[in-house]
Write a protein that binds this DNA or RNA. Structure first.
Lengths: 218, 218
DNA sequence: CTGTGTGAAGGAGTTCACAGCG
DNA sequence: CGCTGTGAACTCCTTCACACAG
């Protein structure tokens, strides 16, 4: 099965399909059509079919897709078929929230390490995990062969932390600090920058007004 | 000044330019080239110039762009030239983190309301804001003419909250709950779904292995 | 000679239209 | 018929190449 390079945009959508399938399977739904997935996701039905076609045709014409099989397929593509170990660096408000949040409960993800450099925070327990000293970070990720990390430290420390992660063998980083960072080739960094999200959202909050201006200009 | 419809992708990049300009101006940098912005952002210099061209040419050939003027221009486009009032609904870990986080400190954003329906949480103070009862939500947004809201309630309640927001006149919503929601036409919803971010990141964490497989297949 | 501004080319992603199977 | 699978058309975004201004 040659995974012929799946477009970036498709990869972005897969985790959403995955979650929906999880819900459907929980409700014992065995077959789902691209049409109903379209209603749930807001993506067009054709697009959904195209997305699925990237990893091999397997729908049943006339009825739809087998939910279990589809989920298996998506899990394999993403690489979630075995639980992935993830660490969080930075146990401020945001890091703490994430470690207690849905992510920590997601069946495909296993949060195995929490780090901070504040002595006040080190040693605190979150669920069954104790916050470790950031000094142990590099050893930990090397030994445990951690590949995925979430960075929730202040902007000033983020580059430093990311450098260490990269040296320790981490290949995928979710950076929540409001800075753009340098990473060596082969390391992937994604930005989840809430301030930026809000700012671009604010543009749309007054779009209606802008639309009216535009209409009037015609 | 006719804002001839600025492409979606450009809007996404503007807030990042804005932040960088803020930093440059703080360091008394008066001129910046597309080249150096390219190094900071990772976007190509041509793209940056094109982005700026969408809201009128104003760089000085040979030297670069005036940081102050550029910032003013971007603020106007996004609609941040006057502070925007934002509310947060759902004061769980995530909502609390956000209300204490950078967003709360951003000079262009003013968090003016926090809501929850848990009596234990109502009345708590975060900075100088008291958490209000979610029952007051609709009245509050109507009176204060709130246009932008962040939703950090559990997935099960999110649709309900969003319906209320839309009825109360909110036109832009950042949903952090792990569900896709229905909104009436004219209301914009953005999703900041950390679980999905992590999942798609995990795909890339083993991309190197995948690349090798692909190379071997040739 | 540096750095902006921009048409033209190229690439990526989405929608259309319809063929084909159950 | 209903729903999948997919080339072709289209739209949107990015990169290239180069003219031009300070």
């Amino acid at each position: 099965m040659p995974y012929r390079s799946i477009p970036r945009m498709v990869i972005k959508r897969l985790p959403l399909y995955l979650r929906i399938l999880d819900n459907l399977i929980k409700r014992d739904v065995e077959i789902v059509s691209s049409r109903s997935l379209s209603e749930i996701t807001g993506f067009s039905a054709e697009q959904i079919r195209k997305d699925f076609a990237y990893f091999g045709a397997f729908g049943t014409r006339g009825s739809g897709y087998n939910t279990e099989y589809l989920r298996e397929r998506i899990l394999t593509i993403i690489g979630l078929n075995r639980q992935t170990s993830v660490i969080i660096v930075g146990m401020g408000h945001l890091g703490t929230a994430i470690s207690r949040y849905n992510i920590a409960k997601n069946p495909y993800i296993n949060i195995v390490g929490l780090f901070d450099r504040d002595p006040q925070v080190i040693g605190q327990k979150i669920f069954d995990l104790e916050v470790k000293d950031a000094k142990q970070l590099k050893d930990f990720i090397t030994e445990a062969k951690i590949k995925v990390a979430i960075v929730t430290v202040p902007a000033e420390c983020a580059q430093e932390v990311v450098d260490e992660l990269a040296e320790g063998g981490v290949t995928a980083i979710l950076n929540m600090a409001p800075v753009r960072l340098q990473v060596p080739k082969g390391v992937h960094i994604h930005y989840a920058d809430l301030t930026i999200e809000i700012h671009s959202l604010i543009y749309y909050s007054s779009e209606t007004e802008r639309d009216i201006e535009e209409l009037e200009a015609l």
